[in-house]
Design a protein around this nucleic acid. Structure first.
Lengths: 196, 196
DNA sequence: CTAGTTACGTACTCTCAGTATGAAACATGG
DNA sequence: CCATGTTTCATACTGAGAGTACGTAACTAG
């Protein structure tokens, strides 16, 4: 393990810590997961965690950001596969609902984040990732004349709120594969409301 | 303080505890509020709290239920003042958004509850109060032929999710009185989507 | 009036977040 | 290559707070 640069050491350790944080915070939730447990799962001690992160909240925040980066990438990929703006929106919504089947994502992003981080913080981070994708999709639809004009940031936020609840419902279903289309149908109904 | 029955003593103490819990949990949030602080604010000690409630979570749950009872009553009152089913729905949504201006409600119900209690628990309690009102409103609208048929429990949940996000947005606004109509307009647009 | 139950208060334990403090591993000027 | 920072961690400690054990006072039942 000798001969590595400081940046390499840091990246290695922070990477391991964030990965472990996502696993443990995602599996057991924020409160019952000790920072020692995360450090141990990462193969280091608490000292390393407190050196690289300000505290437990900062470590959680890093895991949260990582979750959002992943889902945003998946959304952009899915929406990019459609040409029609409204079809892209529907596809993106469906992809988000599917992503909610991941228990870690639900626990970190949908359940714990608003409580652990302030709502302002969550909103800001979500805006930079998830909401930006949704907002862009809406803007394209409006520009193309396929959706009615209005307060797009607010509209994106409302759609997002509905999708989060839908994701939790889907995850709770005993047969998600069967319920996804039904849920997507109700969600599409709301998207249809935006047609001019 | 002598000569009271046991039931009176219990009711007095639990009432004071739940009121104090709503105040402190609502103002500072769940995690940074110690159970000793709640007990002190209620004029008792930790022993009383642990005697009447299973623990900190159970005390929070009682405060959460109380919040939901209040908002549900407000919703039923508001919706009951309208004859038209769709108008009652719009009125109820607007009332809910206004209720979100209460910081304690936001902190307890919208931010902390999903993290502190399990989602199953939150959903069950919300179903017995808030969601029941919304669901009934939707059912009346469908029965009257004013709204399209569909999966009403799911639809109610989606609307509820959108309203929660809207409530947080409204609270964050520096001029809620001015933003409420704009927000309600976007919310109404989604309700319009349900028209057959 | 006495035995039993309920409603607390007090004093403890134990976990865990956060804080030194020091020792390695690197970096940098000579 | 050496000496002196600087960064990266590990280890030992502190404090706060959730939960528990136990004792005592207030009610209840016979």
């Amino acid at each position: 393990m000798a001969g590595r640069t400081q940046a390499e050491r840091s990246d290695e350790t922070t990477g391991r810590l964030v990965r472990a944080a996502r696993r443990l915070f995602g599996a057991r939730g924020y409160a019952p997961t000790s920072i020692d447990a995360v450090a141990a799962a990462a193969g280091v001690t608490k000292g390393a965690a407190y050196h690289h992160f300000g505290g437990k909240v900062a470590l959680f925040r890093a895991a949260f950001v990582r979750e959002l980066e992943e889902v945003s990438a998946a959304l952009e990929r899915a929406a990019g596969a459609e040409q029609e703006p409204m079809a892209a929106l529907r596809r993106g919504c469906r992809t988000f609902l599917e992503h909610c089947l991941d228990p870690g994502f639900r626990q970190i992003v949908l359940l714990d984040a608003p409580s652990v981080l302030s709502w302002e913080t969550v909103r800001a981070i979500e805006h930079d990732h998830l909401l930006r994708v949704l907002h862009d999709g809406l803007r394209v639809a409006v520009a193309g004349g396929q959706a009615a004009d209005g307060d797009l940031p607010v509209r994106a936020r409302l759609v997002f709120g509905a999708l989060c609840e839908g994701g939790m419902l889907l995850a709770r279903s005993q047969d998600p594969a069967a319920d996804l289309p039904r849920l997507a149908a109700e969600a599409d109904r709301f998207l249809e409301a935006l047609r001019r």
